[in-house]
Nucleic acid binder design. Sequence first.
RNA 1: UCCUCGGUAGCUCAGCUGGUAGAGCAGGUGGCUGUUAACCACCUUGUCGGCGGUUCGAUUACGUCCCGGGGAGCCA
Length: 458
Amino acid sequence: MHLRINTLLNQPPTGEKVEVAGWIRTRRDTGGFSFLEVNDGSCLANIQVIADKDLVNYEQDIKRLTTGCSVRIEGTLQASPAKGQAVELLAGRVEVVGWADPETYPLQKKRHSFEFLREITHLRPRTNALGAVARVRSRLSFAVHTFFQKRGFIQVHTPIITTSDCEGAGEMFQVSTTRPHGGAGKAEAAEEFFGRRAGLTVSGQLQAEVYALAMGDVYTFGPTFRAENSNTSRHLAEFWMIEPEMAFCDLRGNMRLAEEMLKYCLTDVMDNCAEDMELFDRFIEKGLLEKLRGVTGQDFAHITYTEAVERLQGCGKTFEFAVQWGIDLQSEHERYLSEEVYKRPLIVTDYPAAIKPFYMRVNDDGKTVAAMDILVPGIGEIVGGSQREERYDVLEARMRAAGIDPAEYSWYLDLRRYGSVPHAGFGLGFERLVQFVTGMANIREVIPFPRTPGFAPC
RNA sequence: UCCUCGGUAGCUCAGCUGGUAGAGCAGGUGGCUGUUAACCACCUUGUCGGCGGUUCGAUUACGUCCCGGGGAGCCA
């Protein structure tokens, strides 16, 4: 039975016989033996293996080992006489499990550009940076669940195939069993598998509300799909979203939860992925750890949309797009506020009703809604949420005003007809969180298999 | 989708005003008693993103399409 390298590296060199299994990163020959750097993905560090020339297969196997070969090695853990590692493995047996022809294997023992690695999506987790991203992503996911579970939230698996659009959330991918050219002019809707138009979910929020109004505090954490033709370093056609929804909760409670959750996740990752975070801090974004500690160490800033507009109009800075009440804040405005004015996460609340979806609760002024966006330096909007409209009449009127047929959403309106309560929730793009935590510039590097317009290789 | 900059060896890039290309790394061979971006010597590698036109001749200038970077819109 082999041991994971991360556990081995944390063991004292007892001289015990152990086995590791992993992939060769580099081989260095020195006179009578070779150094092998073996990585198994359990941690950033490799284990250094000493393979002596007296090993039976030294000439025919070990001296032919190159980057990417898989090996199984039995040996004794010993203290390393040289600097660079505390322990090393003195090999007693080196078995080559799978060769990797160096003439064609694309990965080298040097740095590659992320653009190049994206072309070999299936091999890139074998690199330091992408491996670190994978571990941090996994830990973050765990932290999200831990955070909610500790607070008694119930996880709800909302549907991936849905027939209700979450208005304002972007274009849906259609789900259909009918072939594009096989319709032969028949009534297509009647042939639909679900008897009506269906698509991949753009948000689990509406269904999460269903369970919030039965179970109190719930959350969803699953894949989400947007058929938008957006080509940026912050957008994916398939991404993961975290959406808590709380009954008997207002915007204030919603904001508090979002802030606590972000702080919990950042702290957890810094505590549990120190080695990987060190890599990001050194090579990906200088000052990353300081930035993250700045987020966990102070309260988020708060400003209303109206105050933000006044502030932007009076700041003396000229923007490409003019700032005017009633028009949504542009990226440049959000960046200015979070990066230059506050220099920390900023929560903007109470947006004009006209630019927000129908389900957001109308404030007493009749012009704004109880919405909140959390803007984070470098990423922009990372959280979007609101208190939901719990008043039947107001909600129905808002739906009609938005051109939505209330009959289509009768199930949603029923939640207000029977035992309605004030409730609130938010959506957090998981990949944007991973981006913020790792400092990775492009969102395509923080999801294992990115999907963007024209790109879905495997 | 729009603006903008790019696409040259396996990778990262150089190539002035049109005359079919080069450096580092990687890879191969040999050397080296502890290396860790190993080191030293020698060697190999190209439909110059695709297509079309201009030209005696296009990697270079033109048109178009594809892909990537940066920015914008949409948003998470």
